[in-house]
């Protein structure tokens, strides 16, 4: 018979079970293994195999086909002297730094406004309104912002002309000096949905009494913000920041759609360079090595993320 999990740790049966020999227990559970066959096979083939292939092939020169020979750590050394990669890392660090501040401050601000409302119904509707841009497919965010930055008929330039600042119109994505700033502001007034929901959730769990007693003690909006709301949502804020870092490190569709790393390679980021190495230059070995470096960086972030999110998303 299959052995079920009981909530009470029933002793007799399970002790006898665990004493019987392993092959017998495996045989008894055969249908369970059959049930797990498909998912396990899929994960082995489509997840574990490529992951190990990346680690392994980062030590090889590989064009994705027949050309395949061992070069040891050469790809990693190359990264150190690769100018494009250095630009990519610098860009990424600056970009992540800026985005983390923006993607935390903006939703916190909106959430703070919302929890200050006395009307529960309005709070609910504002939450829905700010989540709404989520229904726009991600790629459309980028395409719409490409229109906003369009040098001929873009929203930004037209807006500048409208208020008489014609001199400031600019090819925002075409100038190496402005391209990273332009990219950093993509989706700007739209709240990052996830971070917004997490922070709002955190703020909403602060007990009403805390706010009331603060009000009785004469704390105004600002005091309350700095002495109650921010300290009490530290976990959620941290989580929002880590999530932004994780998203920004691995997602490069923004860069691919908006500039493809250009002009030149002034808006290159490591993940985009990985993509181009593999699919434009057929350097699958080098691409894998970049992947490994990103993986190690993100691993550290993910471990922190799992620690923090265990507490913060439960609300």
């Amino acid at each position: 018979m299959l052995r079920r999990l009981a909530t009470s740790p029933s002793v007799g049966a399970s002790k006898r079970e665990s004493q019987s020999r392993l092959p017998i227990r495996v045989w008894r559970a055969k249908w369970l293994y059959v049930a797990l066959l498909i998912p396990v096979a899929m994960l082995l083939i489509f997840e574990w195999l490529p992951a190990f292939s990346a680690l392994y092939n980062s030590l090889y020169i590989w064009n994705g086909g027949k050309v395949h020979f061992y070069v040891g750590l050469e790809h990693y050394e190359r990264m150190l002297s690769d100018r494009t990669f250095r630009v990519a890392i610098t860009n990424l660090l600056g970009f992540v730094f800026f985005r983390v501040i923006m993607q935390t401050a903006l939703p916190f601000f909106a959430a703070e406004m919302i929890i200050n409302l006395r009307s529960a119904r309005w709070s609910y509707w504002w939450k829905i309104i700010f989540v709404f841009p989520m229904v726009v497919p991600t790629i459309l965010n980028y395409l719409i912002w490409r229109f906003i930055y369009n040098p001929q008929v873009g929203l930004l330039n037209e807006g500048l002309k409208l208020i008489g600042l014609d001199d400031y119109t600019h090819a925002w994505l075409g100038d190496p000096n402005t391209v990273m700033w332009a990219l950093a502001f993509v989706r700007f007034p739209w709240l990052p949905t996830l971070q917004f929901l997490i922070i709002l959730g955190g703020l909403q769990t602060i007990p009403q009494e805390v706010h009331e007693s603060a009000a009785i003690d004469g704390a105004g909006f600002w005091r309350r913000l700095f002495y109650i709301d921010i300290p009490m949502t530290k976990r959620q804020i941290t989580l929002a920041m880590i999530l932004t870092m994780l998203f920004m490190t691995q997602r490069f569709d923004l860069f691919l759609v908006m500039t493809d790393g250009g002009p030149g390679y002034s808006s290159m980021v490591p993940a985009l360079q990985l993509y181009q190495s593999a699919f434009h230059f057929l350097e699958f070995g080098y691409a894998s090595a970049i992947g490994v470096v990103l993986f190690v960086a993100m691993l550290a972030l993910t471990i922190i993320n799992l620690r923090v999110s265990a507490g913060a998303t439960s609300n």
């Binding site: 994960l43 997840e47 990346a54 691409a287």
Partner: peptide, 12 residues
């Protein structure tokens, strides 16, 4: 596998 990001596995 939660720790394994999509960029690592993309090319292979």
């Amino acid at each position: 596998l939660i720790m394994v990001p999509g960029v690592l596995t993309l090319a292979p």
